[in-house]
Amino acid sequence: MSGPGNMLATAAIGPVEIDKQLVLDRGSTLMDLHGVGPSGAAKLLADIGDVHRFVCRDRFASWIGAHCR
């Protein structure tokens, strides 16, 4: 239910805290990597979606443009 109290509580939480919670809720360990913060991890997860849709890591690497042949 939305109300003035809920808006104030939401306004007190910044975007970084929201990103961090979204990443943690997905069970991701991306933020454990050096240089990957909550916002970067959230953006990666949003762009990639379900990583299990890739049949192997080579397909994933190709999708992100990092596959060398």
Rank of each mutant, 00 (worst) to 15 (best):
28 S>N: 11
38 P>T: 01
51 V>K: 13
51 V>A: 09
50 D>G: 00
32 D>M: 05
11 A>I: 00
28 S>E: 06
26 R>K: 08
46 A>Q: 11
38 P>R: 10
46 A>E: 06
14 G>T: 05
48 I>V: 08
41 A>M: 03
29 T>R: 13
51 V>W: 07
12 A>G: 15
47 D>M: 14
17 E>G: 08
42 A>V: 00
52 H>Y: 15
34 H>W: 10
51 V>T: 08
19 D>G: 01
37 G>T: 03
14 G>I: 02
20 K>N: 06
47 D>C: 10
47 D>F: 14
31 M>Q: 10
18 I>G: 10
37 G>Q: 03
11 A>W: 00
20 K>C: 04
37 G>V: 01
19 D>M: 01
22 L>F: 14
33 L>Q: 13
35 G>S: 07
41 A>Y: 04
15 P>F: 00
52 H>I: 07
38 P>D: 02
14 G>Q: 07
18 I>Y: 01
45 L>W: 02
39 S>G: 13
31 M>E: 10
36 V>H: 05
34 H>E: 15
50 D>E: 02
42 A>N: 11
29 T>W: 07
38 P>H: 04
34 H>T: 09
34 H>S: 12
48 I>W: 07
46 A>T: 09
11 A>L: 06
9 A>C: 08
47 D>G: 04
42 A>C: 05
10 T>E: 15
44 L>N: 12
29 T>F: 05
13 I>L: 07
17 E>N: 14
32 D>K: 13
33 L>N: 09
44 L>F: 15
21 Q>G: 01
22 L>K: 14
12 A>M: 09
39 S>D: 08
18 I>F: 00
44 L>T: 13
39 S>R: 15
14 G>M: 03
42 A>P: 02
33 L>M: 14
50 D>C: 00
22 L>I: 04
35 G>F: 00
40 G>R: 11
29 T>S: 15
10 T>G: 11
